[in-house]
Design a binder for these strands. Structure first.
Length: 427
DNA sequence: TCTGGGGTCCTAGGACCC
DNA sequence: TCTGGGGTCCTAGGACCC
């Protein structure tokens, strides 16, 4: 064990709490018949899409998350395929968050099913880390009926890696000073941020274990891999080097982008169908901008063809926006400037980024009409909250595709004498 | 086998400015 | 009249995570 000199900072105690097979476990609560069976969450066996989560029984057949559903069906024909229920996961995620709040004020949900807690200095209150983890696990179980695994260490990285090693349903504490010893025998792919590509590159350099990595000079890694290489060198020692990991636990960070995308059940080259989808995606993005009080300067279209080739095309506005019709207008332009007309499309996406918050400048600089639009949209959002998504459609006739459309050419196909959606119309 | 949807971060080239 | 160097913004693409 390394010794600490008196002026070294007190090491932090970070917990990483990771729910076990979260989506599957939540589905089991709603349908206990699923318990113990091979279950695949994410969609039906013959659908386009990938596995969101697989039960441990299904994993025995080689099924894992991110695998195409159709592949999973072949590997494990007897599996039960279940559609995902994001509302249920959010509901249970909130319960998880509540429980964690009893243990530390510094809680950060890293995703719907995992969280970091800064437990530094809570020993007097909560006892030794493992004892505390045990209590946390028990309280989690009784409050949510769900199992979790807990990793404990002096950094987010160590906590994260140790929770993975503790799975399922366990806890693991890496003592301060033992970080390098813990990481050394692990595969480089166990480091968060090292995926397939990086792993291959490292393997080709003869680097298999984290220990091999730790023996290299920081400079060499930086030369080979740039900024990333430097972060990697730190990670091999258990440090929260670079990027998001360097944030304090619980530090709130504004989102950098908001996006929605849609993969069609079958590829389509039908312009009207494609445009109505872009309209819907624009509405969804705009809505979330308004909820967060963000104004986006940059709008991006994503276009994926049948053969999976994917392009993104972006445009930055003079004035940031959060309004449906402005977003749609931009992505519509980008779409027609880049779509190989008639060729089948697999996926469309709309992303907003480069946020500016607050509306003061918009109020001053934009015409009165824009303010009116904003009021109307806020009212519509409110109605949707109250009565459900179908209660009101600003883009009347567009929801659900063109079969139901009432206006002539409401999304403005070019060359048909269309006028721009929204624009001058009074809301 | 045939590849979701929501994000973050990094790189790299070109435009533009001083 | 043959050509520097840095900084910043914009855009496109890709690796990675859950």
């Amino acid at each position: 064990m390394m010794t600490r000199s008196p002026d070294d900072p007190i090491p932090r105690t970070i917990f990483h709490v990771d729910m076990d097979a979260f989506f599957v476990s939540v589905e089991e609560l709603f349908d206990p018949a699923l318990k113990g069976k091979p279950v695949v969450v994410g969609g039906q066996r013959d659908e386009r899409g990938v596995v969101s989560a697989a039960s441990y029984a299904a994993r025995k057949f080689g099924v894992h998350s991110a695998m195409p559903l159709r592949t999973a069906a072949k590997l494990c024909p007897q599996a039960i395929f279940v559609n995902g229920h994001p509302e249920r996961y959010r509901e249970y995620s909130a319960k998880v968050h509540d429980v964690l709040g009893h243990f530390s004020p510094l809680v950060e949900m890293a995703s719907v099913d995992e969280a970091y807690l800064d437990m530094t200095g809570t020993e007097r209150l909560h006892g030794r880390p493992l004892r505390c983890a045990h209590r946390l696990h028990a309280e989690m179980k009784s409050a949510t009926q769900l199992n979790c695994s807990i990793g404990i260490g002096t950094s987010r990285l160590i906590a994260k890696v140790s929770s993975a090693k503790a799975k399922p349903n366990g806890a693991l504490w890496v003592l301060p000073g033992e970080e390098a010893k813990f990481l050394s025998p692990l595969a480089v792919g166990d480091i968060p941020g090292v995926g397939k590509v990086m792993e291959q590159k490292l393997h080709s350099m003869g680097i298999q274990k984290v220990g091999d990595l730790a023996r290299l000079e920081d400079r060499d890694l930086e030369q080979r891999f740039g900024k990333w290489g430097l972060a990697l060198a730190g990670k091999s020692r258990g440090e929260d080097a670079g990027g998001w990991f360097a944030n304090e636990v619980g530090e709130s960070v504004d989102p950098k982008s908001i996006s929605h995308e849609h993969t069609f059940d079958e590829d389509t080259g039908d312009a009207e169908r494609l445009l109505s989808t872009l309209m819907r995606l624009s509405e969804m993005v705009a809505r979330r901008l308004r909820e967060g009080a963000y104004f986006a300067r940059t709008l991006q279209l994503k276009l994926r063809y049948k053969d999976f080739t994917t392009i993104t095309r972006a445009h930055s506005l003079e004035q940031p926006t959060q309004m449906d019709h402005q977003i749609f207008e931009q992505v519509r332009r980008l779409f027609f400037a880049n779509w190989k007309s008639g060729s089948p499309v697999r996926l469309l996406g709309v992303q907003a980024s480069h946020f500016e918050s607050g509306s003061s400048q918009l109020d001053l600089l934009q015409p009165v009409q824009q303010q009116r639009w904003q009021n109307a949209l806020a009212a519509a959002d409110h109605l949707r909250d109250k009565y459900g998504e179908s209660a009101i459609g600003l883009a009347r006739g567009l929801k659900g595709g063109f079969r139901e459309r009432t206006h002539e050419n409401p999304v403005g196909l070019p060359g048909k004498g269309s006028k721009e959606t929204g624009g001058e119309e009074k809301p």
